[in-house]
Computed example of a mutant assay.
Amino acid sequence: MRYILQLLLLLFILVPIIEIGVFIQVGDILGLGTTLFIVVITAVVGVNLLKRQGFKAWRDIQMSMAQGQIPALEMASAAQLLFAGGLLLTPGFVTDFIGFSLMIPEVRRTIAKQLMRRWQNKASGFSQSSHFHDGSEFNSYDNHSSAQRRQGRTLEGEYEERSE
């Protein structure tokens, strides 16, 4: 968690510096008016693309759920679209490039698969204990090899009532 916070702080500092540098370079080449016009146009086009892609992502989630499947990739795609929308509304050429890249379904699918593979590897061997508000507890234990876990969706565990 500390690593993620440090990375976010670094990005929070570096991204504006990079964007300012790119603005200066583009402004020197195209002029201030044209540069500002391009920034506004990319935001408008980005919002329209986001709207279309967002509706498609919502339909994909609904179709997946209607077929009885867990819409994991579709949800990851929708989250990336949300992030892309924020980037496209942020003034700048670098953030616009990243935002428009995330509008490409194949890019989102590739990133989602990589993230899910990473989360699945971290979750391997995970043991969880959940306490509910009524004092009961649910424990899930991992007694299977990782190959067996990937094949099925069986959850084994034990439930214990505790009185206070």
Rank of each mutant, 00 (worst) to 15 (best):
Q53N: 11
Q62F: 12
P71A: 14
K51T: 04
S64R: 11
F55R: 06
K51C: 07
Q69W: 12
Q69E: 15
K56Y: 03
L73P: 05
D60Y: 04
G68H: 12
G68W: 11
L50P: 03
L50G: 15
L50S: 14
N48L: 14
I70N: 08
K56W: 00
Q69G: 08
E74K: 01
L49D: 07
F55V: 03
G54W: 05
D60G: 00
A72N: 06
F55W: 07
M63L: 15
Q67S: 14
R59T: 07
K56Q: 07
L49T: 07
V47D: 07
Q62M: 09
A72K: 09
R52P: 03
L49N: 13
I61M: 04
W58P: 00
S64T: 15
A66Q: 15
P71L: 11
K56E: 01
W58G: 00
S64C: 15
R59G: 01
S64V: 10
K51A: 10
A72M: 00
Q69A: 15
I70D: 08
P71R: 07
Q67Y: 04
L50Y: 01
P71E: 02
S64F: 04
G68N: 09
V47F: 14
D60Q: 08
F55C: 05
Q67L: 10
F55L: 03
R59E: 05
L49M: 14
D60C: 02
F55N: 11
